[in-house]
């Protein structure tokens, strides 16, 4: 069965094919297949129904590039920060490492407090 549907002034050619175990729907040549109910065949083409991993890409994070002791924090939650602004001091091996902002943003959460031991890769703050 061939159909033509129009969405927002664009026309799409749809072809529906019913086979023994599945129904195939071709949209502009791109094929999607759905198993016929009650059939136990593989549902490998059920992409439209898949749950995608939940990640909010609007949230940005600043991670520790090294391990150390968080010896000072210069910002607080809710602060608007600018790229290059001093955020923390991480001390390690008697070296002081000034961590500066990689990007502009507003601090949503600071996940550690002064005195905490930080591991490389830990998320230090989230920005919105």
């Amino acid at each position: 069965m061939n159909l033509k549907i129009k969405i927002k002034n664009k026309e799409y050619n749809i072809e529906i094919l019913e086979e023994e175990s599945e129904v195939k729907i071709k949209v502009e040549g791109k094929e999607f297949a759905f198993p016929i109910e009650g059939n136990n065949s593989t549902d490998k083409f059920l992409a439209p129904q898949m749950n995608l991993p939940k990640k909010d890409f609007s949230i940005k994070e600043i991670k520790a590039v090294m391990a150390g002791n968080l010896s000072d924090i210069f910002v607080k939650e809710g602060d608007t920060i600018k790229e290059g602004q001093k955020l923390f001091i991480l001390s390690a091996m008697k070296m002081e490492n000034e961590i500066i902002a990689e990007m502009d943003g507003k601090i949503k959460k600071i996940l550690f407090k002064v005195g905490d031991q930080i591991r490389e890769g830990d998320i230090l703050i989230t920005l919105v």
């Binding site: 590039v65 090294m66 290059g84 091996m93 008697k94 070296m95 002081e96 490492n97 000034e98 961590i99 500066i100 902002a101 990689e102």
Partner: peptide
């Protein structure tokens, strides 16, 4: 790693500081 003593008294201190923005 960073202090020097003479006669059990501190004579020198060393402090390395880095500015890190990803790298």
């Amino acid at each position: 790693p960073n202090d020097v003593y003479v006669n059990n008294k501190k004579i020198c201190g060393i402090l390395t500081e880095n500015i890190i923005q990803k790298t």
